[in-house]
C-alpha cells in the first residue's frame, strides 16, 4: 500500500537544527559540498498498488530522486484525475514527466540554477514520444547545487515544498491556481480539445533560489499532503526527527504520509482544503481524499 523510495548510500553526518556546521574539508570559501539525504513515501487514493515497474507512482502522483555530479534533484508531479473520463490513465503523464526529468538529471542535461529548464525540456520530450500521450500534471522540481549550497526550485501548480530550519518554515513555494481547486498545469490535450483544456507553459513555473544550511529539512509533496495537513502538524512531525540517517528520515516521511492519509478520510476534520473551500463560499468539511506523495530530505555534507 505504501512504499518507500530507496535512495542513496549517502551516509549523513549532519546534525539537526544546524548545531554543528563545522566542516572538516572546508578549504576556502563556503566549505565542502552539500548533498540531500532523501526518503519518500506515499499513498494512492484508491489503495492501488503504489510502486510501479517504471519509476515511482502513488495513484496519479509520481516522483523522482536523482543525483548528478553537480547537484541533487528531486521532483513530484500530480496527474490531473479528470483525464480518466477520456479513458486516459492520468498517472501515465505525471509518471512519464518525472521519469524524463530523472533521465535528464542522470545524464547531466541540465543546469542546476535553471530548474524550469528541466521542466521545459522534459515537457518537450513528452511531445517527442511516439506514444500519443494525453493528460496534465502539476510539477515541482527542487535542485540542490552541491558547491554553491543553493536550493533552486521550480513549481507549477499546487504541489510544493517547505524548507524547515530550527523547527520553523524559512522558505516555501507559492501555490499557483487559476481558480479554486484548479492549479496551473502542464498538459497535452487531444487535437479536438486543444484550447479547451487548461494548459500552462512550463515557463509559467514559479522559480526561486534559496541558500540552505546543513541540517535544513526540505519537504516536497503534492497537494494531497498540503490540503490535509496544516503547517503546524507537519512541523510537529518533523520535530520527531532526531537523526539524519536514511532510516529515520524514511520513518518520519512515512509517519507524515500516514497521518495525512488518515486525515484525508476523516469526515469531521476541518482540513486546510475544507478551510479554503469555506473561504471560497463552499460548505465543505472533512479531509480531501487524494493521492499523497511526500519526499523528505535533509541537507547533509556530501559524501560520495
Amino acid at each position: 500500500m505504501f512504499s518507500v523510495l530507496s535512495y542513496g548510500r549517502l551516509v549523513a553526518r549532519a546534525v539537526l537544527g544546524g548545531l554543528s556546521q563545522t566542516d572538516p574539508r572546508a578549504g576556502g570559501g563556503g566549505g565542502g559540498d552539500y548533498g540531500l539525504v532523501t526518503a519518500g513515501c506515499g499513498f494512492g487514493k484508491d489503495f492501488r498498488k503504489g510502486l510501479l515497474k517504471k519509476g515511482v507512482c502513488y495513484g496519479d502522483d509520481a516522483c523522482f530522486v536523482a543525483r548528478h555530479r553537480s547537484a541533487d534533484v528531486l521532483g513530484v508531479a500530480d496527474g490531473v484525475g479528470g483525464w480518466r473520463d477520456y479513458g486516459v490513465d492520468p498517472s501515465q503523464f505525471s509518471g512519464t514527466l518525472m521519469r524524463t526529468c530523472e533521465r535528464l538529471v542522470k545524464e547531466g542535461r541540465f543546469i542546476p540554477s535553471n530548474p524550469v529548464g528541466i521542466l521545459t525540456t522534459s515537457y518537450c520530450e513528452l511531445l517527442q514520444n511516439k506514444i500519443p500521450l494525453l493528460g496534465s500534471s502539476t510539477a515541482c522540481i527542487v535542485v540542490l547545487d552541491r558547491t554553491s549550497h543553493r536550493l533552486h526550485t521550480a513549481n507549477l501548480g499546487d504541489s510544493g515544498f517547505l524548507v524547515v530550519r530550527g523547527g520553523e518554515v524559512v522558505h516555501r513555494s507559492d501555490e499557483q491556481q487559476h481558480y479554486f481547486n484548479t492549479p496551473f498545469q502542464l498538459s497535452i490535450a487531444p487535437p479536438e480539445a486543444e484550447g479547451v483544456v487548461l494548459s500552462d507553459s512550463p515557463d509559467a513555473a514559479d522559480s526561486t533560489s534559496f541558500d540552505v544550511q546543513l541540517g535544513d529539512i526540505i519537504l516536497t509533496a503534492t497537494d494531497g499532503l498540503f490540503d490535509n495537513m496544516p503547517d503546524y502538524m507537519i512541523l510537529q512531525e518533523l520535530k520527531k526527527l532526531k537523526n539524519s540517517n536514511y532510516e529515520s528520515i524514511q520513518q518520519t516521511a512515512r509517519s507524515i504520509a500516514e497521518q495525512a492519509h488518515e486525515l484525508a478520510y476523516d469526515p469531521n476534520y476541518m482540513s486546510p482544503f475544507a478551510q479554503f473551500a469555506c473561504d471560497n463560499g463552499l460548505n465543505v468539511r472533512g479531509g480531501k481524499p487524494d493521492d499523497i506523495t511526500v519526499l523528505l530530505s535533509i541537507v547533509a555534507e556530501y559524501t560520495d
Binding site: R103, E107, R109, C124, E125, Q128, N129, K130
Partner: peptide, 27 residues
Amino acid sequence: GSENSMSYTMWNLAGIPNVYPSSGDFT
C-alpha cells in the same frame, strides 16, 4: 529523433543501458 531532443536519437547510445533487458520501441 529530432536534433533538439534526446528521444530516439543516436546520442542515446552513449552511457549505460536505459532499456536493456526490456524489449520494445522506447524513446
